[in-house]
Design a protein around this nucleic acid. Sequence first.
DNA 1: AACACTATCTATAACTC
DNA 2: TGAGTTATAGATAGTGT
Lengths: 176, 176
Amino acid sequence: MGRRKIEIAAVKDPNTRQVTFSKRRTGLFKKANELSILCGAEIAIVVFSIGNRPYSFGHPGVDAVAAKFLRHETKSNDVKQNNVEVGDISRLNQQLLDIEAQILVEEKKGLEHDQILKQHQLSQPSQFKQLQDSYLELQRRVKDYTDAIEVSECLILLAQQPVVEITKQVKKRRKN
Amino acid sequence: MGRRKIEIAAVKDPNTRQVTFSKRRTGLFKKANELSILCGAEIAIVVFSIGNRPYSFGHPGVDAVAAKFLRHETKSNDVKQNNVEVGDISRLNQQLLDIEAQILVEEKKGLEHDQILKQHQLSQPSQFKQLQDSYLELQRRVKDYTDAIEVSECLILLAQQPVVEITKQVKKRRKN
DNA sequence: AACACTATCTATAACTC
DNA sequence: TGAGTTATAGATAGTGT
């Protein structure tokens, strides 16, 4: 959509990225506005720049739409618990892709943290104690999450094989 | 953007409106996805059709971004912290809290996965192979992320202690 | 009625000042 | 270096099936 075709991949140059972010964010909000007018739809958008600066658009308002969404979401979750559909498999797969993408984002953030930490090494000792505690807590959470994934693996295995084989594989994995 | 130019005004015909809504919603989500990838931005979109049907897009996830937004929103109402150093540190801390929140969201998703998997155990063997591969890949990524967090820890330690002590601690942790 | 098609309009990447 | 311009890629309104 410009002079040259660009690949949809992270823009490295910070300056170019900032310009692209600003332009595309404007374009996105314009599209959202058109959608709400053309189709009588309610819409809310929240964007965080790479520097964690928040931008939002909403019709009739971000908070109103968000609240509405949360209300609907909890209801539909309750229904799904009791009502099984075959299409869930593909949605599961989709969720997996989403999580993978999220993990990638977190990896990048971790690296950014490292950069920032380097720049602030010796400036605020008392706050670093706080940070360290947060990191340790965070690591614990990630570990728990990893365990949860393991449980999921076991369930998949359960779906494919006679149960006898499972325990071996699980224990083998645990030792790793 | 089509065969004819259209005015940005409410589309009356329900059929046309539905088609327009569907197409433009898809386009909007695609743009949002591109924005998040190109610029490393986090984004959440919620749309309600005229029939109050909810549609959402989120990277890394609607819930995570929404929670982050609400937190930032309330923060901005608080008294500003003017010190530059403190501002940066608190932003770092903020990012940590954000990541923790995301991990929590992922944990919940993981549990939901387990629920759904239980219900679908023996139905689609070929798809389970796919799922299994995805999970293994996912686990690898989480492992990498955990390592990245470890690196961050080391940097924090560096900021607090004489360098000599660090290597011991790092190696000790590595063996774990 | 959910697709595919395509002529046309719109967003924007690179450029300019 | 931020705001405006332009050539081009991308989105989509109307259409066909």
